[in-house]
Amino acid sequence: MPLQRLERLSEIAPHTWDALVPETQPFLRHAFLSSLEDSGSLGPHSGWQPEHLLHVEGDRLIAALPSYRKWHSYGEYVFDHAWAEACERAGIDYYPKLLTAVPFSPVSGPRLLAATIEDGFELLQSLPGYLEIEGLSSAHINFTDPFTDAALAGQPGWLQRIGCQYHWQNRGYRDFQDFLDALSSRKRKQMRKEREQVAGQGIDFEWLEGRQLDQAQWDFVYACYANTYAVRRQAPYLTREFFSLLAERMPESIRVVLAKQGSRPVAMAFSLVGGDSFYGRYWGCLAEFDRLHFETCFYQGMDYAIANGFQRFDAGAQGEHKLIRGFEPVITHSWHYLRHPGLKSAVKDFLERERVGVMGYAEEAKTALPYRQG
């Protein structure tokens, strides 16, 4: 089956693409991915060249892989830098490679977009030949859901990798105090003290949906977001225009909390919602305040999730400090197809050892959770 390739998502109608995307998944929607492209956040200059692969029969879209041709491994959160470095030492070309993922967002969800696994099989079976024709070293499908896992498990040559994130689960809490009551006394006191420290600095919070922010407020949101990169002397992945386009195209999915000292905004956290899940994405502040990060990024999100009936709070990748605040270890999955036989063999051995370590870590991490025992 010859694959069809889109180099811009604008080449396909939003309703055609979104027909394959679950309504609960905001990150795969045409509005989100096209905003990345149309804002200049993606493109050859960034090392992320859109290369969406489609299986089309007649005028009907059967299956799709939202994909990108990559010349580096930044912004992926499934780290293969060591594989690339090994290839460089051995004189093997690792880039360009093909990545199926949500750019800059380590959020698990659908990657093979199809109504049934059978609908997606032909597309997956065509990938190895496509890689060879295009001179791509490998294909990587990051942060997959069970549907995509099941489809890839039946395909030869793919290697599965696991990782660990931390998600908070809303167990029917009536309010934040109800959540605190589920914790050990020491942890409960620690969280209450952290929140009191923020309140004691005269900081209040305002929640806004996408349609409620004006351009001046979006300027502030972007300034905060960009500052998190500036302090590390890095360039931000996203452009200012991305936020305006997203607010125009899918405002109903956007949530922003502004931290204010008096009438002056000093920090923000930007999130998306979909189905029963609340996704914390970007944060930033323009001044230093004690414990403000924990309050803005975690406790405010928990409060909002409880008040609005969200069952899961995904606050992003990494961060062991989330454990003591009630975020539980969750295993994530990615899949990798490597054309070079020597590289594939070495990575296969590595992933088997890594898997044992990750599973052991996830079990050990549970001992740091703050919940009462018994």
Rank of each mutant, 00 (worst) to 15 (best):
P14N: 06
A19T: 13
Q25V: 15
N308M: 11
Y337F: 15
E11L: 12
P156C: 08
L65R: 01
W207E: 06
V256C: 04
P2K: 15
H15D: 14
Y74H: 10
E248R: 14
F27G: 00
Q261A: 15
W83H: 07
P2A: 15
A13N: 03
F27R: 00
W207L: 13
T367Y: 12
F289S: 00
H293S: 09
E328R: 08
D181M: 12
F220L: 04
S39L: 09
K189D: 08
A114M: 05
H30F: 06
D349E: 14
A199C: 08
E364N: 12
E196V: 11
L323Y: 08
L292F: 11
D175C: 10
R312G: 07
Y222F: 05
Y304A: 04
L238S: 02
R29C: 10
I62P: 00
T228L: 06
A259C: 07
E76M: 05
V107L: 06
C297Q: 01
I92S: 02
T228A: 11
H45W: 10
Q165L: 10
Q190Y: 08
E320V: 15
A182H: 09
Y237A: 11
P106K: 05
S137R: 02
Q169E: 12
I12E: 01
A31W: 02
E194N: 07
C285K: 02
G135T: 10
I92K: 03
R240P: 00
G316I: 09
A115H: 11
E134Y: 10
S67Q: 03
L152P: 00
L3W: 07
L246H: 04
L292I: 15
H15T: 15
A307N: 08
G163T: 07
V266I: 15
C224T: 14
Y95E: 06
L53D: 00
N142R: 14
G262Y: 12
G163K: 03
C164I: 13
G163F: 04
L9H: 04
D349M: 13
R291C: 12
G210H: 01
H321L: 09
P44T: 08
L131F: 11
Q373C: 12
V256W: 01
G262S: 08
A287R: 08
H167I: 09
E57R: 15
C164G: 05
Q160L: 09
E320H: 13
T228W: 05
V266H: 00
L131R: 07
D18Q: 07
G40D: 02
A235Y: 10
R188V: 15
S108K: 02
F32Y: 05
F147D: 00
H336W: 05
E248T: 11
L258P: 00
R186F: 10
P329D: 04
L152Q: 01
A153F: 08
G75D: 01
E295V: 10
E85V: 09
M191F: 10
H45M: 11
T332N: 03
E88G: 09
W207Q: 07
A235R: 15
F350G: 09
F298H: 04
E134T: 13
L6R: 06
R232C: 05
